[in-house]
Write a protein that binds this DNA or RNA. Structure first.
Lengths: 343, 343
DNA sequence: TATTAGCACTCGGAAAGATTGAGTGCTAAT
DNA sequence: ATTAGCACTCAATCTTTCCGAGTGCTAATA
């Protein structure tokens, strides 16, 4: 059996109705509220076919039909090829207060959650491949040295280190010059053992202090590699009763709160994203086990500096894909420009 | 009517039973499971009295009794005067990975939530009254100046500023000396307009740049004043059905997620805490409207540097006050020593 | 051959009763 | 002052009934 034009139209009608109501859709509804001018009986026949094709299903006999994951997938693929729309209010909301990356990303998650009524997740851009811009050591007090490390994209990391004795000004200066000479412009991966060795040699009597400093730098880098994930609107998930019992939803909320599996999700989405940067996971397709009853839409944004971040929306399978996808598309564009302007 | 010894015993029995089960407690239960050796009828009479005193109530006729807020309050006050117990496992869990304040506080919230099954909240120490330790300006690239600001307790803030031209090394040095001379050791409140004026005068040709810098410092200070609040275990709240319908719990979760009203709670608890630093809010006593059905226990920890932070536990009214209070007491002690060791 | 009207059938969910049992208050006896 | 006993209440739970949305199938129609 083939999926002809009419079947497709009916499928779309079923899905979009289901997206609105969350209730199984009956044949009569379709017959009445589409411009197909077919009787419910005919629709029923077609529905039987669609069911056979695995695109829709009945939650129980004598109920209407709901889309299967496969049905959603078809719908989303269709829809993705169509045009965008709307989105302007969000921009203004977003720009209200953008003074700091962290604040901004939290804000993005919040605004997005508020506007979509789904759970959202935003990661800071990951910078593994960006270059070291600047290192500075300063003596904070008798026993503490502060290393300030700045990388492309102006991500700043501080690292406090204990030292045995206070360094003189010229010693500090020398070390600063040394560090910056060797490390400026290096990508985080470039800083290998060999380089460390060289620097330690050059440092002479401060080799042991350098040891300390590298330890600190390593920690700072490690820290920079840990992606910070901001979530918002997680409680929105409680609004969708079809996500099964409360227990399951609770599990999902816990996962979101504890960031369980979110890293996998983000890696997955960063690696697999195509030109548009948008990925849609429906039900079982999700790389996180607690989210098998949901759909997840992720988008990747990219900075000039090479940093990449992810924005994700987690919602019920009957999420408004059209709106979500177009919103995300616009949002990533927006982020791109904001970050570029700030740099 | 007076609250005699026996009534008190019965009240305690009712409350502690209710804490365990979450179900209204009947007269027969008390009669059987206490060493009072009284018949259920007698207990009933006493219960009627306790009800008249406003210490317990019936959720409906022909149900057992549950404690009122007033009853809880009595119980808590009694209990607070008694001895502590237990707590050792938590320490080890806590110390597993303490490399960074932020990480640690998150960890504290998590461990606490895990161990108590309530929602928890932890704030970083607030430093309004601590002193500025160190300021350093560095030229990051052509157009950007980085100010690193360190205050007592080693809270570090970075502030990037745009400048029109690149500063020469000796110029930077001069400014650094200037800033540190005037500002080192000053509490954040000390930095008033007059001082700013003086510094700007001294800065000579760099007055305009100084303007920029002060702007930056102001922002950084402002930022330091914003308390970061970490929450964990919020989904635990879904485990207590007596918190009313799901909607209300959802509201509570939202409040926790969006940090609504948490600042009030923290201020309140910081200001009102007595020698022990522990505060208990029962039901309506809570300074946050969404939490009228819960109880909140907060504890204040204090650093040598003068920073104060709050740890809070939010749970149902029938929370295990004894355990919670002793846990919090121990935890704050622990935090105090950890922070002191780190300084 | 495609569509439609008609009808018997299914089944979840709401409504209405029936049953249970934990708990109470009151009274009379100890 | 305490207790046994009893009638009464009421939420919770289980049963039963009923309704209607929706189906599949068949026979009639265009």
């Amino acid at each position: 059996m083939e999926l002809d034009e009419r079947k497709l139209k009916i499928l779309k009608a079923i899905i979009s109705n289901y997206l609105e109501t969350g209730e199984p859709v009956g044949s009569r509804t379709i017959s009445k509220y589409t411009d197909l001018n077919l009787s419910s009986a005919t629709i029923r026949n077609e529905m039987a076919d669609l069911e056979e094709l695995g695109l829709i299903m009945q939650p129980h006999t004598s109920a209407g039909r709901i889309p299967t994951d496969k049905g959603y997938r078809l719908y989303v693929d269709q829809m993705m090829s169509e045009k965008d729309t709307e989105m302007k209010e969000m921009k203004t909301q977003l720009l209200e207060r953008v003074d700091k990356m962290e604040t901004m990303l939290k804000q993005v998650a919040k605004v997005l959650a508020y506007n979509t009524n789904y759970a959202t997740l935003v990661t800071a851009p990951q910078y593994q491949n960006s270059k070291l811009k600047f290192i500075q050591l300063s003596q904070v007090d008798d026993s503490q040295l502060l290393a300030v490390i700045v990388v492309d994209g102006n991500v700043i990391k501080n690292k406090l280190m204990q030292v045995e004795r206070m360094l003189a000004n010229d010693e500090l200066l020398k070390l600063n010059v040394l560090l910056n000479t060797f490390l400026q412009g290096a990508s985080l991966q470039d800083i290998n053992l060999e380089m460390i060795h060289t620097i330690k040699n050059q440092a002479g009597e401060f080799a042991d202090i350098m040891e300390n400093i590298f330890q600190g730098i390593a920690e700072a880098i490690h820290e920079a590699d840990e992606v910070e994930i901001y979530t918002s609107g997680t409680t929105n998930m409680l609004k969708y009763p079809e996500l099964g019992n409360v227990e399951q939803t609770t599990k999902l909320l816990e996962a979101l709160e504890e960031r369980q599996g979110l890293n996998e999700l983000i890696d997955e989405s960063l690696n697999n994203s195509d030109a548009t940067g948008i990925q849609v996971y429906i039900g079982e397709e999700a790389p996180v086990s607690n989210m098998k009853d949901c759909s997840i839409v992720t988008a990747t944004y990219e900075l000039d500096g090479g940093g990449k971040g992810t924005i994700g929306i987690i919602g019920p399978k009957r999420m408004d894909y059209k709106k979500v996808v177009s919103t995300l598309k616009n949002l990533t564009d927006e982020l791109d420009t904001i970050f570029k302007k700030k740099e």
